[in-house]
Write a protein that binds this DNA or RNA. Structure first.
Lengths: 164, 164
DNA sequence: TCAAACCCTTACGTTTACGTAAGAGTGATA
DNA sequence: TATCACTCTTACGTAAACGTAAGGGTTTGA
């Protein structure tokens, strides 16, 4: 057992504890501090960073935003904006704006990926026909086998690699 | 008009022509060559890279794969695998495998993004309630206004920023 | 033949989110 | 008090996909 229990009883965690609980590395947490994303509640007499439990939450929050595609710098702006608007409604309005934008962006990304998935499926369907392709025919001539896909056209994903 | 027409009549394009047609920069095309993704058909007497029309197709193909999340290095592997398998069916089998993996991955990404979009919506719904929040209440106390969301819980996306 | 517009090679710069290492101090435990 | 695991600061390293600049040839059309 480590010293975590005694620290925990004082509800103070060292950087390593935070790291273990969030799956992040110590270095990452240091970085977040450099960027102003998370400061320790206090420092021990010897200079150790001591965090409260909400430090874990903050990091999970950061992780969430990262997953959403925010960069650490954007997250920093996020916090700054928050701190600057004195009233709750005003701050909330800004956050709402950012979230709305990101939601739109996320949906666009989903749409794009969906199209790509369709294209992949299409290409895979086309490639099915190659199973029975004449062994003697080399791939450089692929697409000229006359057995083109459903729409009688070689998908770009396949065509691009075959030629040359 | 540039010299593109005369070159085109010989069906040879200079790197700048390729760049214009694909929206890539000359530097990018140089990079693709360094990585072995696209070689010019020939070099002019003076050393200019001269491409045939299919160079454009190759770059569009690269772009497509990049959109799908392949790195240039992965694309290189892609081409190598293709070149190494002598028969078409064998090559096709490998390509099919790669595509299948990527399709699964893409679908996972879509699922993840969908969850995030849901979370964003949820957070936005919660923030709606803040419109009428008491001005005098500072954001540091947000979440304690008693007017928590539908499930009477502050979403992590909001909670993470509010505390501290 | 001359000039404008291109192109060539070489090579260092950029951004993001950490990784890694060095040298030294700290804290809880035996 | 001796240890051993942890932590501190400082600072250079990394990977991807190009950007950018320098110094100098090449094409082409007037």
């Amino acid at each position: 057992m480590t010293n975590e229990f005694s620290a925990e009883s004082l509800s103070l965690l060292k950087v390593g504890d935070i790291a273990r609980r969030t799956g992040k590395t110590v270095r990452a947490i240091h970085l977040y501090e450099e960027l102003g994303l998370l400061n320790p509640a206090v420092r021990s007499k010897g200079g150790f960073r001591m965090y409260r439990g909400d430090g874990v939450k903050r990091i999970e929050w950061i992780q969430k935003l990262q997953d959403m595609g925010f960069s650490l710098t954007e997250i920093k702006v996020f916090l700054r904006v928050w701190g600057e608007s004195a009233t709750a409604p005003k701050a909330m309005a800004t956050v709402r704006e950012i979230f709305t934008d990101k939601l739109r962006e996320t949906r666009e990304t989903i749409a794009r990926l969906t199209r790509l998935a369709d294209e992949l499926s299409e290409s895979l369907a086309f490639l099915e026909g190659c199973r029975s392709c004449d062994q003697s025919q080399h791939q450089r001539e692929c697409g000229g086998c006359g057995r083109s896909g459903p729409d009688h056209e070689v998908p770009l994903l396949v065509d691009g690699i075959a030629k040359r």
